[in-house]
């Protein structure tokens, strides 16, 4: 069976909602449900999960019967990866290498995601923002962030 029907926008959206709803409803059943008068931890989540699954099924069914088929636009992987790498490097290393170095890394990595990015612009920008971050966030606003490598 071909999986190409997944590329239709509403098919994908409907499936996403349907599956999430089912998973949430199943998860809700792990918690005590209680009764309508004394609702347990699982009661409201079960209602919501069920409702989301029904909505997802409706979106899905309608997509199958609709004549208009919008395809999902292509996801741009390069910006996703570079921005993801920059943010994760910042989050993961801030504690050990300090705000200045982490800011520089974030700018240098994520800055590459633009089509016209240039290293000779990004390096000074990263340096400037490392200084700016130190001045404004740590000294100016007094945020409790480590500034230099521990």
């Amino acid at each position: 069976m071909s999986l190409s029907f997944l590329k239709h926008r509403d098919v994908a959206a409907g499936l996403l909602f349907l599956l999430t709803g089912v998973v949430v409803a199943a998860g809700a059943c792990q918690y005590p449900l209680g009764s309508a008068m004394r609702m347990g931890a699982g009661y409201f989540p079960l209602l919501l999960g069920g409702f989301l699954a029904i909505l997802g099924a409706a979106v899905l069914l309608r997509a199958f019967f609709s004549r208009q088929k919008h395809l999902v636009e292509r996801l741009m992987l390069k910006p996703m990866l570079l921005i993801g790498a920059g943010v994760l490097a910042f989050a993961g290393l801030l504690g050990s290498i300090g705000l200045a170095a982490a800011s520089f890394l974030l700018i240098a990595l994520s800055g590459l995601a633009h089509q016209e990015s240039r290293m000779r612009e990004l390096l000074p920008l990263g340096l400037a923002m490392a200084l700016f971050g130190a001045g404004v966030f740590v000294w100016g606003l007094g945020l409790p962030l480590p500034l230099l490598p521990a």
Binding site: L94, I107, G111, L125, P144
Partner: peptide, 29 residues
Amino acid sequence: RLLYPVILLFCCVGVYSINNSAFDVGLTL
């Protein structure tokens, strides 16, 4: 191309400083 890395940095510092939590930054991503 020069603006968005700075915006991204502000977002990350803002989120991190709520709880000093790297987890929150990852969740934001």
